[in-house]
Deep mutational scan, measured.
Amino acid sequence: DHDVVPEDKFQETLHLKEKEGCPQAFHALLSWLLTQDSTAILDFWRVLFKDYNLERYGRLQPILDSFPKDVDLSQPRKGRKPPAVPKALVPPPRLPTKRKASEEARAAAPAALTPRGTASPGSQLKAKPPKKPESSAEQQRLPLGNGIQTMSASVQRAVAMSSGDVPGARGAVEGILIQQVFESGGSKKCIQVGGEFYTPSKFEDSGSGKNKARSSSGPKPLVRAKGAQGAAPGGGEARLGQQGSVPAPLALPSDPQLHQKNEDECAVCRDGGELICCDGCPRAFHLACLSPPLREIPSGTWRCSSCLQATVQEVQPRAEEPRPQEPPVETPLPPGLRSAGEEVRGPPGEPLAGMDTTLVYKHLPAPPSAAPLPGLDSSALHPLLCVGPEGQQNLAPGARCGVCGDGTDVLRCTHCAAAFHWRCHFPAGTSRPGTGLRCRSCSGDVTPAPVEGVLAPSPARLAPGPAKDDTASHEPALHRDDLESLLSEHTFDGILQWAIQSMARPAAPFPS
């Protein structure tokens, strides 16, 4: 592969990997390779389809078979030569091979799209000592099968071997295949498990690692696999990028399955594409389908809103127990993405979901129960707010008499603000006073009005108090039968009158 990737590009890729991570280095090298001529790309395919690569990765054979028959990708048995050289000459001794072996032994695996480039050397060096003999053996194999790289107009793939297949390693990572398949204008990513390549439709969760975000852009890794992070704060999961590491605690105790298979379609829109997988259930989501939507993949363990709600429900009964003089119970939860139609709101002032922060849900004790107040519409209280300059209440639009249902020339009671006709409430011909108009209920007259088809109010509507207090003497005590009587009149003013009279009014101040 030294004929494909020059030394300066190799060093530039290593520097970019240390600065921005393996995914960015892979993407940059792939983009550079696509700008080369067809001879360089053909050399790339020839390096990929060597015999030892085909033996190690069985899924490469179907890719090789898909090439046109007129494309010669065979390799000479006596060494490598550029395709432009007409004579089959043995190339001179390859010093770059020693360079590659020494550099890969030092860096474990470079971040390139060629056999030198995919593992994360920093994480491997940190986690190597417990498994040094086995990992050293794996390093000797890295130059042979560490990076199976493929690129063409139909298929483009980048393979990364790992030393996680050490025997006896619980939940060992089998390997990473960062794979971009450009077929019919689409893009897919796969993962390699035990020599087999699994596409998103049959993606397997190998051991402790999972394909957290099938994305090839942005600074985030394709698999949430930063070796420096180790395990999740809650004892979460091992990262795919942690090559040759000792077994780590796999999943939280509440995880239903340690080796679950995540779905390959969004649980909201039932469509495929780039998904984020939940650590607590097999569901996966688009970032845009979450509520609120996320802009980037959160670091650490992530769970959907259903799993978060289940966790909150487990903690909430203990938080609601009476604990005198104790601060509110704080339950730190990872930043969760909410699927459509589901929402768990945190306290005000918290950062938005999706940031690399930890939301704190506070379970406050329930407030003391209070008697429910009568629910009145805002339009129902409008007549009470229509007060004239002299303190006389004006008529609201649409006000109707509670007896006849007519809204023409209605009066407004100064005591309960109900609309009424003087002739309907006082049919006996009582003279109307000039000021202080009161309806039949507030004036103490319980004589029913002779209106055909309208039920008369119940005599129990009024329960006047002592006459010594004029204001308190007109406080009506309405009961269920009074409400039914008012409802039978089918008037809004009657219902409003009952609601206003049912509310307690402050006692009249004593004259000074």
Rank of each mutant, 00 (worst) to 15 (best):
Y361H: 04
Q243K: 09
E320N: 09
V360N: 11
H474E: 05
V329W: 13
R480I: 14
P253Q: 11
V451G: 12
D356G: 09
P335L: 10
E452T: 10
P374I: 14
T471I: 15
P317G: 12
P433G: 13
V344W: 15
G241R: 10
E343A: 08
L294S: 12
V387F: 10
G241H: 14
C278D: 07
L384W: 14
R440V: 03
V329G: 10
L478Y: 13
H421V: 02
L411P: 02
L483C: 06
P334Q: 13
L373F: 07
C439G: 02
S443D: 04
T414N: 13
V387C: 11
E350W: 09
I500L: 03
G336V: 08
E350P: 08
L478K: 00
P256M: 14
E265S: 07
G244E: 14
E343W: 13
S512P: 05
G388N: 08
T301F: 13
L258D: 03
A456E: 06
D482Y: 04
A460G: 12
P389Y: 14
C281H: 07
G349A: 08
V410H: 12
W302M: 14
D356E: 06
H479I: 11
F510M: 07
R345F: 11
E314S: 12
C281F: 09
A456F: 12
P466C: 07
T414S: 13
Q243V: 08
A371P: 13
L496M: 00
Q242L: 10
R303Y: 02
E342C: 05
C277D: 10
P459Q: 07
E475T: 07
G407V: 14
L496S: 01
S245Y: 13
H490W: 00
G429Y: 13
D493L: 00
T414F: 06
A340I: 08
T311S: 11
A371S: 10
S305V: 08
P427R: 07
A370P: 10
A507W: 04
V246G: 11
E343N: 14
W302V: 13
A288W: 12
P292V: 09
G494R: 03
R440N: 10
P397Y: 10
R295P: 13
H425T: 12
M355D: 07
A310H: 10
V246K: 05
L352R: 06
Q257M: 13
E489T: 00
P348Q: 14
P292N: 05
G241F: 08
V268G: 11
I297Y: 05
C277Q: 04
S254W: 11
C424Q: 05
C401S: 03
G375S: 10
R438A: 03
Q243D: 11
P293C: 13
L250Q: 07
T430I: 08
G244L: 09
Q501Y: 02
D406Y: 14
S299I: 08
P457C: 13
P427V: 05
T311I: 07
A456P: 10
L308K: 10
H479K: 05
R440C: 09
A353N: 07
G429W: 08
P506A: 04
E390K: 07
P511R: 05
H286K: 12
C269L: 05
E342V: 15
R400G: 07
Q260E: 14
V403I: 14
F510V: 02
R270K: 12
H286F: 04
R295F: 08
A508L: 09
W498N: 00
R505A: 02
D279R: 09
G444C: 09
P282S: 12
Q501I: 01
E484D: 13
H259L: 05
C307Q: 14
G429M: 01
R423D: 08
L483Y: 10
P317V: 10
S431C: 12
P335E: 09
A399K: 05
L395H: 15
H490F: 04
V454I: 11
C416W: 02
K468V: 06
R303V: 07
A456V: 09
D469G: 10
P347W: 14
V315Y: 09
A371C: 04
A248I: 09
S305A: 06
C413A: 02
R432L: 10
S502V: 01
V312M: 13
H479Y: 07
S339L: 09
S339C: 14
L258V: 10
P450K: 06
Q325A: 09
G465R: 08
R318H: 06
E296W: 12
P450F: 14
E296I: 15
P450M: 14
D493W: 00
P282N: 11
A467I: 11
H479P: 11
S473W: 04
P367C: 09
R323T: 07
D255N: 07
F420T: 02
A419F: 09
L411Y: 07
A251M: 09
I495F: 07
L275F: 08
L455T: 12
L381C: 07
K468M: 03
G273I: 04
L376A: 04
L437I: 07
L294T: 07
L462P: 03
S369I: 07
L381R: 07
L462I: 13
V246N: 05
C278Y: 07
L437H: 05
W302D: 11
